[in-house]
Nucleic acid binder design. Structure first.
Length: 301
DNA sequence: CGCGTTTGACCCGCGC
DNA sequence: GCGCGGGTCAAACGCG
C-alpha cells in the first residue's frame, strides 16, 4: 500500500530537487523568473499532493474491493457446501480467476484441492508462461457486438455459448503481428449485460498500432486490467467506477504479494501518462528543464 | 478478389 | 471409457 504513495513521491522529487537547486544558486536573475519558479514549485507541490491523494483513494477503493470480494467468496463457499456439486466446472480456471479478483488476499489456504490445482498450474507454467488479465468495458446495452476497441487489432476466430453465461463468448487473436500470440476472450457480464468482460492471455510483443482508439466509439474503459491491458489502461484519467484490479498471473506461487510490483509499475505508468497530459505539469516540467539548462549555462560561464 | 466474420465440426481435458 | 463443455479449426459466407 505504501509503495504506491512512494511512487508519487518519486515523481515529485526530481522536479523539486531541480527547482530548489536552481533557486538556491540563482542570485541575480530577473524577478519574473523567480516568480515563475515559485509558481512552478507551487504547482509541483500541488501535483504531488494530488498524486498522494489519488494513491490514497486508490488504496481505499482497492481495500474495499478486497473486502467485498472476500465476503462474496465466503458466501460462495457456503453455497458450494450446501448445494450439490456442479457437474462440470473448471476448478483451475475458477480458482485462478478468483485469486485474480481478490488480488492476493484471502487465497493460499493450501487445501488438497489447491494442491491439485497448483500441480496443474505448474504444468501450465512450463508450457506457457503467459499473463492473464480481465478488463471490463462499458458498452451500450443495445450494442450486440462483442467488439472491444482497445487499441489493438484482433481477428475473431471463434464464438461459443458457454454454460454459465447465456451470452456468447467471442475468441480473438491479435492480428497486429503474426508473431504475437496474444488471445482475447470477450463475453458479456452475467450481472450487467452492458458490461463486456475481456480476458487477455499473453503479452503483446509489438507496439500498439493506435494509441487513441480506446477513447472513441461506444466502448468506454471502466477499469484497468493487467500487464496487457490495452491503451485505455494508460489513460490515467479513467474513472474508477469499478476499481477492480483483476491483474492475474499464472505464476501463482505466492499469490499474496507477487503481483504488486507489476501493479505498482502500471500505476506509475498511469500517473506518468496522466501527468504528461496535464498542461500545468508539462509547463512545470518545461520550466524545470529550462531552469536546469539555465543553471548549467551560468556555471559554465 | 481479398479479407474478415460466422458457424458447425472437431479436439482435448476433466469428472464421473 | 464415456459424456460434457471449453477452445480451436476451417470451410462457407458476406462485404468493400
Amino acid at each position: 500500500m505504501d509503495q504506491y504513495s512512494s511512487s508519487s513521491v518519486d515523481t515529485s522529487l526530481d522536479l523539486t530537487i531541480g527547482i530548489t537547486r536552481m533557486r538556491v544558486e540563482e542570485d541575480s536573475t530577473t524577478s519574473a523568473l523567480v516568480d515563475e519558479l515559485k509558481r512552478v514549485n507551487a504547482e509541483n507541490k500541488k501535483l504531488s499532493e494530488m498524486l498522494t491523494l489519488m494513491c490514497d483513494n486508490y488504496n481505499v477503493l482497492r481495500k474495499q474491493l478486497m473486502e467485498y470480494v472476500n465476503k462474496n467468496n465466503n458466501t460462495a463457499e457456503r453455497d458450494d457446501q450446501t448445494s450439490p456439486p456442479k457437474k462440470r466446472k473448471s476448478p483451475a480456471r475458477d480458482e485462478a480467476i478468483s485469486s485474480a479478483v481478490i488480488g492476493g488476499v484471502s487465497e493460499s489456504s493450501s487445501t488438497d484441492q489447491d494442491d491439485q490445482y497448483l500441480c496443474k498450474k505448474q504444468r501450465e507454467e512450463t508450457v506457457v508462461k503467459e499473463k492473464v488479465s480481465r478488463v471490463y468495458y462499458k458498452t451500450e446495452a443495445s450494442d450486440t457486438t462483442l467488439v472491444v476497441k482497445d487499441g489493438y487489432q484482433w481477428r475473431k476466430y471463434g464464438q461459443k455459448v458457454t454454460r454459465d453465461n447465456p451470452s456468447p463468448r467471442a475468441y480473438f487473436k491479435c492480428a497486429c503481428a503474426p508473431s504475437c500470440s496474444v488471445k482475447k476472450k470477450v463475453q458479456r457480464s452475467v450481472e450487467d449485460q452492458s458490461v463486456l468482460v475481456a480476458t487477455y492471455e499473453g503479452e503483446h510483443n509489438h507496439p500498439m498500432p493506435s494509441q487513441m482508439d480506446s477513447n472513441n466509439g461506444l466502448n468506454r474503459y471502466v477499469s484497468l486490467g493487467g500487464p496487457v491491458a490495452p491503451a485505455a489502461a494508460a489513460n490515467g484519467s479513467c474513472s474508477l467506477a469499478k476499481p477492480v484490479d483483476l491483474t492475474e498471473s499464472k505464476k501463482v506461487r505466492s499469490p499474496s504479494r507477487i503481483e504488486f510490483p507489476e501493479v505498482q509499475k502500471l500505476l506509475v505508468e498511469q500517473m506518468a501518462s496522466s501527468l504528461t497530459k496535464d498542461p500545468n505539469f508539462t509547463a512545470a516540467l518545461a520550466a524545470a528543464v529550462t531552469g536546469r539548462l539555465y543553471q548549467q549555462n551560468q556555471t559554465e560561464k
